[in-house]
Write a protein that binds this DNA or RNA. Structure first.
Lengths: 189, 189
DNA sequence: CTCGCTTATTCCTAACAGGAACACTAACCT
DNA sequence: AGGTTAGTGTTCCTGTTAGGAATAAGCGAG
């Protein structure tokens, strides 16, 4: 039984686990709660923010695998990356086949079924979507600004800022698309 | 106990259920297998394609709720929308609060952690992503072409074609973004 | 001091992903 | 004919993920 565990390092973990390791890879010592917050704040633009339940159970597993260290100062427990955790993460970065993006776009799904309802219902939905798009964009803008400060770690490239720029341009593109769709629907192609 | 069921029509179903009802709303009589195929072919660009297991168990539920009709000709069973199923779907289209898109972008996630590995590893990943993007784009192009033929249902707007155009422009945008990123990384901002 | 807010964790349930297993059909192929 | 291979159609099982309720301690304001 025990001998199998020695090779368990090469087993792949659920994506959530790597996302958490990734958040810890920036060096901070974080509680489950803080990890969830950071995920909600920055990660959510490119990856689904894991549920609270998921964060804690995943941390449990990562601790069992010695990929994170526990810093239990009384009631609250915080976590940091172990050297082995860092190795696992970089190995995953290099060796794991990278999947294709998956999108769950409720607006597109409904647009597809647009013939079921009146056009006003569709244009209304698109306008609501535009408004929310704008909110999200300003949120991401704030994140990018705050990254400018933190992102001063020397030698490498400023990847988090790059990704933020990518996200912003994504929002901009979607806005023009939706505006165009609105125009086409209102005038009849 | 029984009396509660009378109000169960207003209960909301999982998203997968609405996606399946949506696929059936185009009028065909489909088996679970065919539904899965259609989802893989067209739906996947805007919504996660449900797993086989999910399709069959969801159809089971929809049948229990009398939202789909079963056409059991021997060993294979096909399904079609009941009037009540159509009503449920249009009600959902109009009344359900529309959520914000969720993206799982493994390339963006890794780019965020780019400092962990050498730049060549990142540019390699981006180039792979470009290639796959191109494949997906041509798949979607085929879908759009085939829609031109089917999409001749009279009065309304050609929504499926609209959504396909949206998807194509999404791929085009992502391609230019990635190419720009590659250039910026290779030259050092 | 107690009301409400944030932090922090645990637990439960339903939804979803992924694929193995099984069975039947059809084409083709030597 | 018999055999192989590919596609159709369904069921079952396990692990992962989503979502939120419940709990509790700490902390600032009235």
């Amino acid at each position: 039984m025990g001998q199998d565990l020695s090779r368990d390092q090469s087993r792949h973990l659920p994506m959530t686990a790597y996302a958490l390791l990734g958040l810890l890879s920036f060096g901070d010592e974080l509680t489950g709660y803080e990890l969830k917050q950071r995920a909600d704040r920055t990660l959510r633009f490119y990856w689904v923010s894991p549920a609270m339940s998921q964060v804690y159970s995943e941390l449990e597993r990562l601790h069992d695998l010695a990929l994170v260290r526990r810093h239990g100062s009384g009631r609250t427990t915080s976590y940091s990356l172990t050297p082995m955790g860092r190795t696992t993460l970089t190995t995953w970065m290099r060796e794991t086949p990278v999947g294709f993006p998956v999108l769950k776009h409720p607006v597109a799904l409904r647009l597809l079924l647009g013939a079921l309802v009146d056009p006003e219902s569709i244009t209304g939905m698109l306008r609501d979507h535009l408004a929310r798009l704008e909110e999200e964009r300003t949120d991401l803008e704030k994140v990018r600004v705050s990254l400018r400060g933190v992102d001063r770690s020397g030698d490498g490239f400023r990847y988090p800022a790059l990704v933020a720029d990518w996200g912003l341009s994504y929002f901009d593109h979607e806005r023009t698309i939706i505006e165009d769709l609105l125009h086409r629907i209102e005038t009849g192609t």
